[in-house]
Design a protein around this nucleic acid. Structure first.
Length: 480
RNA sequence: GGGAUUGUAGUCUAGCUUGGUAUGAUACUAGUCUGGGGGACUAGUGGUCGCAGGUUCAAAUCCUGCCAAUCCCA
């Protein structure tokens, strides 16, 4: 392997797909498992997931949601209870057909999602209005067979996610819950991962199979494709009826409940890699970085080493006392230059270099990963590191927002739409609301309706396809 | 769903056409010198050539099937 091969060998602009795969593997976030479509999450990758999990758990708890755990196997008879839902998932379900050598009569699905199982349980647990609302979240994995074109984090046959399932006495309360969750998702993604999202509804065609409607948050990736970042569904009574999730109200009349379900997956990690990474590798937002600050000590001899290392230890202790995640790279066999490149590949937000020159000047060199700027910081200014990290976090979001704006195009003319779609991007195109136009556009441009943003209702324009009166201005894009 | 390409040490790779027991680099281990943007030298370790069959005196190489990966187009 040549020196260049240690790092990422292709440019993000020239070969985006290859670049992405190399970053995932070389930054050691994940590796391929021996089975098609499955990956192994390595500690740095899992740490990012844990960070998201912690943030979401706190917000869920504040909203009265508690965690539970569901088994992975669902009998076919249960999965088939809501017919549209089953038809939607069936092509990608893995089945367990045998226990040892015995064939299983009612074969078992490896959960593609847990609505059917959760609601079977819910119907047992809920009898009275006093049992509601019931709000449980499950951290688990889901399995959906991907026949082709798998990609770490973005499309894998098994993925880590959380699925929340709530039950309410009224439609209004359930719909409020749907929106509350979407808001939590949006804030988490923007504040933690520094990725801007657009929220709104999915079209009838693109909604979750079995839902009354689906709300979603979508982001634009640097290659111009859209990525679904998370969804929150209003299920109405579509599941409560077949699964008999009922309650007796205060007047002792039995009603079907109103339900929601919602989820985000490790796909968010994929989005973060794509949005922030560069030709030198991964770039992590400080909030989710397993290591926020790495210190590289530099010395020429044993005496210098002693002086430098004692200063480094002092700084490390100092930073740790402020809850900053810091690592000292004291590997003696590697040169400083190698370490710089290594930590940049891994995306550590801030690097501190301390050598004999710095000791003399009573200052250290700090290098920001996201813009690769180097500057000097006095030893007495160590308290500033925390605010520097905050500033990095904010600037990363700002930069991403700018790029997203540049890639968003208002469309009034269909010819313009067709000519620009090859370059990718989010296309704000007025739409009459008819499935026919949606399908035609998909057929002719490859773009589908990613999201109908809240507040985009508009009847003063003409449908980009059929020229009839518009209903809304959805975002059309080619998706992942 | 359609197409193209690939699999040899932790990693990258030569060898394959024309069958004869695997090349080089890097990484790893030990040591010496080094150290502010991917260091140098010396000596070592590391391989069921993706898996399973077949052909053959002999298979990384030829044949068949399978598994896995990458990219492009629906």
């Amino acid at each position: 392997m040549s020196k260049e091969d240690v790092g990422v060998t292709v440019s993000k602009n020239e070969d985006f797909s290859e670049w992405y795969t190399q970053v995932v593997l070389k930054a050691k976030l994940a590796d391929y498992a021996p089975v098609k479509g499955l990956i192994v999450l390595r500690p740095d990758g899992y740490s990012i997931w844990e960070s998201l999990k912690n943030t979401l758990d706190k917000k869920f708890a504040k909203n009265g949601i508690r965690n539970g755990f569901l088994p992975i196997l669902i009998p076919e008879s249960l999965l088939g209870k809501e017919k549209k839902h089953f038809a939607g998932f069936n092509p990608e379900v893995f089945w367990v057909t045998h226990s040892g050598t015995n064939e299983i009569g009612d074969k078992l699905a490896l959960r593609p999602t847990s609505e059917t199982l959760a609601y079977t349980m819910y119907s047992k647990w809920i009898q009275s209005w006093r049992d509601l609302p019931l709000k449980i979240n499950f951290w688990n994995t889901a399995l959906r067979a991907e026949i082709k074109a798998t990609k770490p984090f973005l499309r894998t046959s098994e993925f880590l996610w959380q699925e929340g399932h709530t039950v309410h006495t009224t439609q209004e309360e359930a719909e409020r819950e749907v929106m509350k969750i979407l808001e939590i998702y949006k804030n988490t993604v923007q504040e933690e991962l520094a990725i801007p999202v657009t929220v709104g509804k999915k079209s009838e065609k693109e909604k979750f199979v079995g839902a009354v409607y689906t709300t979603t948050m979508e982001s634009i990736m640097p290659d111009g494709k859209a990525l679904q970042m998370g969804t929150s569904h209003f299920l109405g009574q579509n599941f409560s009826k077949p699964f008999e999730v009922k309650f007796a109200d205060k007047d002792n009349v039995e009603h079907f409940t109103w339900q929601t379900s919602w989820g985000v997956s490790w796909r968010l990690i994929g989005a973060m890699i794509m949005v922030h990474g560069d030709d030198n590798g991964l770039v992590l937002p400080p909030n989710v970085a397993p290591t926020q600050v790495v210190i590289v000590p530099i010395y020429r001899n044993d005496e210098g080493k002693k002086i430098v290392l004692s200063k480094v230890e002092e700084i490390k202790t100092n930073l740790e006392s402020e809850e900053i995640r810091v690592h000292v790279d004291d590997r003696s066999e590697l040169s400083p230059g190698y370490k710089f490149n290594d930590w940049e590949l891994k995306g550590v937000p801030l690097r501190i270099e301390i050598g004999p020159k710095d000791i003399e000047k009573q200052s250290m060199v700090i290098a920001k990963r996201y813009n690769r700027e180097k500057s000097s910081l006095g030893f007495d200014e160590i308290k500033k590191i925390s605010s520097i990290l905050d500033e990095i976090q904010k600037n990363m979001l700002k930069n991403a927002q700018e790029k997203a704006r540049e890639n968003t195009i208002d469309i009034s003319d269909y010819a313009e739409f067709k000519s620009k779609i090859e370059g990718g991007g989010f296309f704000n195109a007025p739409w009459c609301g008819k499935l026919e136009c949606e399908e035609k556009i998909k057929e002719e441009t490859g773009a589908d309706i990613r999201v109908i943003p809240f507040g985009s209702e508009n009847s003063n324009l003409k449908c980009a396809y059929c020229q009839e009166q518009s209903m809304s201005i959805p975002i059309f894009a080619r998706g992942y």
